[in-house]
Computed example of a mutant assay.
Amino acid sequence: MKLNIAICDDERAEIDYLLQLAGQWADARGIAAAFTTYESAESFLFHYADRPNAELVLLDVQMGHLSGIELAKQIRRDNDSMQIVFITGYPDFMGEGYEVSALHYLMKPVKAEKLFEVLDRAQARLQTVPRTLLLPRGGGSIRIKADDIVYAEVLSHTTTLHLTTGTEDFQMRLSDMERALGEGFIRCHRSYLVSMRYVRRVTRTAVVLENGRELPLSRDLYDAVNQAFIQYN
């Protein structure tokens, strides 16, 4: 399992401390965690607009112009699955966490055992919440459940997501879509990405889906796709 964790605090020393503790937790649990750090709420929002892949955020309540509470409210406008853990030196703000469905408040200085306990809870919740993707389109964005995506196909500059409910088109490269889709999807051809969830079998030349459709499988990608299929099942 891979877990994308963001840490947002306006004190670099606090970021480094949380980064160290969260890294120890990930190592102890055998989790491949990817960390991103931000020294302001504005910086988080700027990067989140392009790559909204954080699944858990350790968020300082009191920061400069934009507080952690206000940042959490903006996150919740289009993301109800991200696990938000507030970090604060003052208990007065705890009531506001209910508005944004915060998982927990941790008081500074954060103790390792308390953080580990909260991260365990966050991981457990994420395993039961369907993963959703926020993908850019037409100057805005669209949210799609990862489990609804069967495969992606590129033609010219348009990447089409074939869903269980229809199709959605995006003006983006397949390599960018591959990064956005992340875990559970694999490239089987220069023009196709496929969800391992819907793969019934793999031959030397094709990936056969549950609905019987066959996607081409490049010879140089066979080993990686076949291994992913074996491990998934």
Rank of each mutant, 00 (worst) to 15 (best):
K114Q: 14
L115P: 02
F116L: 09
F116K: 04
E117G: 10
E117T: 11
V118T: 07
L119D: 01
L119F: 12
L119P: 04
D120V: 04
D120L: 10
D120H: 11
R121F: 08
A122H: 02
A122L: 04
Q123P: 00
R125P: 05
R125T: 00
L126N: 05
Q127H: 09
Q127D: 13
Q127K: 13
T128I: 04
T128G: 06
T128L: 08
V129A: 08
V129H: 08
P130T: 03
P130M: 06
P130K: 03
P130H: 07
R131W: 10
T132C: 14
T132S: 14
L133D: 02
L133V: 00
L134V: 12
L135E: 07
L135T: 00
R137Y: 15
G139S: 06
G139C: 04
G139Y: 03
G140I: 06
S141F: 15
S141R: 13
S141G: 14
S141Y: 15
S141H: 15
R143M: 08
R143F: 11
R143L: 12
R143V: 07
I144R: 01
K145S: 11
K145D: 07
A146C: 08
D147L: 07
D147Y: 12
D148V: 01
D148N: 10
I149R: 04
I149Y: 07
V150E: 07
V150N: 06
Y151V: 05
Y151W: 06
Y151D: 12
A152P: 00
A152G: 09
E153D: 15
E153K: 11
E153T: 03
L155E: 13
L155W: 09
S156R: 11
S156W: 01
H157K: 15
H157I: 05
H157Y: 11
T158F: 15
T158P: 10
T159Y: 07
T159W: 05
T160D: 06
T160V: 05
T160F: 05
L161C: 10
T164N: 14
T164Q: 13
